[in-house]
C-alpha cells in the first residue's frame, strides 16, 4: 500500500504584487515577492497526508524554476517531505505548459532512476496562481502516459493497484478508480495545509538540494524552453482599471433599497 509520491510545486509571484512595467511591457520586477503557489500548498499537504495514511513510502517535492525557487523546496522540507529536486537550467527559461510538462516528466523519470524506486503517484495543484492554466498536470500525465484525474477533492482509498478519488464537478461529485501509477490534480477543498515544524525548518536549513539541468534529465533540446514551446505570449497589458462608481445615497434604508432596485432595472439585470 505504501506510495512513492512526487508533488510538483512552483514558485510564483504573490498575487497582488504583479503589475506591468509600462516601459518594457513585461512583468514589473519592482515590488514583486515570490512564494509557493497557494494551490500547491494543498498538493504538498495531500502528499504528506497520504504518506501518513499509508506509511512506508516517500513523498518528494519537485520544482522547475530559477535558482531562487530553491526556497520553496526548503519550505517543502520544513513541512516534512523526504526529498526535493530542483530542475534548474537557463535552457528551461520561457517554457510554456507543453515544454514544462515535458521537463517535469523527465524529472520524474530521473527521480525514479536516482532513488531506484517507482513513483506511484504524482500530485499537482489544479492550477498555479500565475498562469492559471491548469494544463501542466494533465499534460504531464500524457507525457508519462499515466492515467490522471483533475479537480480531485478527496483520495478515498488506496490499494496496491489503484486509488479511488472524488472529483469536484460543477454539479456534484464523480467517484473514479484510477490505476497506479497515476497523476491527480487537487483542489483546495481536499485538506487544510499544515505549517512547517521547527525541526523541519532546521533540517531545511541544512539540506543540500540536488539541482538538475537539461542534460541531467536527458531532456530533448527541441522540446524545452522557448524553442520547445508552442504558445507564445505576444503581448501583456494591464486590465482596464475600473472606475469607482456611484454611491447610492438615500435618507432611509428603504430609499437606498429602492434606488438599488431601480438601478438594476435600468441595467436590465432583473
Amino acid at each position: 500500500m505504501p506510495l512513492n509520491i512526487v508533488v510538483c510545486i512552483k514558485q510564483t509571484p504573490a498575487t497582488g504584487s504583479v503589475s506591468i512595467d509600462p516601459q518594457t511591457g513585461d512583468i514589473s520586477k519592482e515590488g514583486i515577492s515570490y512564494a509557493i503557489s497557494p494551490f500547491d500548498e494543498y498538493a504538498l499537504e495531500e502528499g504528506l497526508r497520504l504518506k501518513e495514511r499509508f506509511p512506508g513510502g516517500a513523498t518528494l517535492a519537485l520544482t522547475m524554476g530559477a535558482v531562487r525557487a530553491e526556497e520553496i523546496l526548503r519550505e517543502a522540507i520544513a513541512r516534512g517531505v523526504d526529498g526535493v529536486y530542483h530542475l534548474c537550467d537557463e535552457a528551461f527559461d520561457g517554457s510554456d505548459t507543453f515544454a514544462t510538462s515535458y521537463i517535469l516528466s523527465q524529472g520524474i523519470r530521473k527521480i525514479e532512476e536516482e532513488r531506484k524506486i517507482k513513483i506511484d503517484l504524482v500530485i499537482c495543484a489544479k492550477q498555479t496562481n500565475d498562469g492559471d492554466t491548469g494544463q501542466v498536470g494533465p499534460g504531464l500525465a500524457a507525457w508519462l502516459d499515466w492515467p490522471n484525474t483533475a479537480y480531485v477533492k478527496k483520495v478515498e482509498q488506496v490499494t496496491d493497484t489503484l486509488l479511488r478519488v472524488h472529483r469536484m464537478m460543477e454539479d456534484g461529485t464523480d467517484i473514479l478508480e484510477i490505476q497506479r501509477p497515476a497523476l491527480i490534480s487537487v483542489v483546495k477543498e481536499i485538506n487544510e495545509p499544515r505549517l512547517p515544524s521547527l525541526k523541519g525548518k532546521m533540517a531545511a536549513k541544512k539540506a543540500v538540494i540536488p539541482r538538475w539541468g537539461a542534460s541531467d534529465i536527458k531532456a530533448d533540446p527541441a522540446l524545452i524552453g522557448l524553442k520547445g514551446s508552442l504558445v507564445e505570449i505576444a503581448k501583456r497589458q494591464s486590465p482596464p482599471k475600473r472606475a469607482g462608481g456611484l454611491k447610492i445615497g438615500g435618507a432611509t434604508i428603504e430609499e437606498k433599497a429602492k434606488i438599488f432596485v431601480d438601478k438594476l432595472r435600468e441595467l436590465k439585470l432583473l
Partner: peptide, 20 residues
Amino acid sequence: EDIRKADLFGVYLPVEYGGF
C-alpha cells in the same frame, strides 16, 4: 494540534527530552 506539529511545545527543554 497545530502548535504540537510545529514543535513549539518544548523549545525551552534540553534535546535529551525531545526539546529544542
